[in-house]
Write a protein that binds this DNA or RNA. Structure first.
Length: 215
DNA sequence: GCCAGGATCGTC
DNA sequence: ACGATCCTGGCA
C-alpha cells in the first residue's frame, strides 16, 4: 500500500472539490489533540474517572469532527460493585468490560439509547467509567447532557463497542490548558437496586459547569 | 422460549 | 409519575 506522508486526503473517491458542510477537517495544520495512552486507563477507576473530567472526547466520522468536553462521569468498580454490569460475571454483553483498559464499552439501555463507558484497570478487573455529560466543543448539538443524549449527539452506537480509544477515529484527548477546578462527588444516578453500593459517591462532575445532566 | 427489569429521557 | 422500546440475563 502506497503511503502518503503528511497527506490527509481520502484514499480515492471520498474527496470532492467542495469542502464538507459541517466542521470539515481543516487543510494544512491540525490541532486535534492526540489520544491519551493506554497507561492513562490502566489505573484505579476512581482516579481515571476524576482525571477524565476536562478531557475531550473526539470522534471523526464521515469527515466530521465531533468534540465534547467531559464534564460528568461515574465509576463502576467491577464484579463486587452491585451497580456494575460485570457484577454477574462475564456475559456476551459485558465481555468488553473484562478485556484490556482503554476500550469503549457501549450498550443499549431501555431499548432507545446507548451509553458509553471507558474500560479501566488491568484486564479482567471489569471496571469502567460511564461518560454522563459533555460540554459541546465542535460538531455537536447542545443536547449532550446525559449518557443517552451524548451518545446520540456523538453518533455513538453498538458498532463502537470494543473500540480501542487509544487511536483514531474515536478517542479521549488531554486538554492541558483547561482549568478543571473543583470536582463534586455524589451518588450515581439510576442505581437504586444496588443496595449498599447505591449511595457510594462515585459520580463526579465539574462544579463550575452548566452542562451537567442533573443537579 | 418466556418474561421481568433496566447505568434514560421526555412528557404529563 | 409514567410510557416508549428492545436488549439482556435468568429460568424453564
Amino acid at each position: 500500500m502506497a503511503d502518503r506522508p503528511g497527506g490527509r486526503s481520502a484514499p480515492h473517491s471520498r474527496r470532492r472539490s467542495t469542502p464538507d458542510p459541517v466542521s470539515p477537517l481543516p487543510e494544512g495544520e491540525f490541532f486535534l489533540p492526540p489520544p491519551l495512552p493506554r497507561s492513562f486507563y490502566d489505573r484505579e477507576t476512581v482516579a481515571v474517572a476524576r482525571d477524565l473530567l476536562g478531557k475531550q472526547l473526539v470522534r471523526i466520522h464521515e469527515g466530521v469532527v465531533r468534540r465534547g468536553r467531559i464534564v460528568e462521569v461515574e465509576g463502576y468498580l467491577g464484579p463486587e460493585d452491585k451497580a456494575c454490569h460485570s457484577a454477574r460475571g462475564m456475559t456476551p454483553r459485558t465481555k468488553v468490560m473484562f478485556g484490556p483498559p482503554g476500550h469503549a464499552y457501549v450498550y443499549m439501555i431501555y431499548g432507545m439509547y446507548f451509553c458509553m463507558n471507558v474500560v479501566t484497570e488491568a484486564e479482567g478487573r471489569a471496571c469502567a467509567v460511564l461518560i454522563r455529560a459533555l460540554e459541546p466543543l465542535s460538531g455537536l448539538s447542545d443536547k449532550t447532557r446525559g449518557p443517552g443524549l451524548l451518545c446520540r449527539a456523538m453518533g455513538i452506537d453498538r458498532s463502537l463497542n470494543g473500540h480501542d480509544l487509544t487511536c483514531e477515529p474515536f478517542y479521549v484527548a488531554d486538554d492541558p490548558s483547561f482549568p478543571v477546578g473543583e470536582i463534586v462527588a455524589r451518588p450515581r444516578i439510576g442505581v437504586g437496586y444496588a443496595e449498599e453500593w447505591t449511595d457510594r459517591p462515585l459520580r463526579f462532575y465539574l462544579s463550575v459547569n452548566s452542562f451537567i445532566s442533573k443537579r
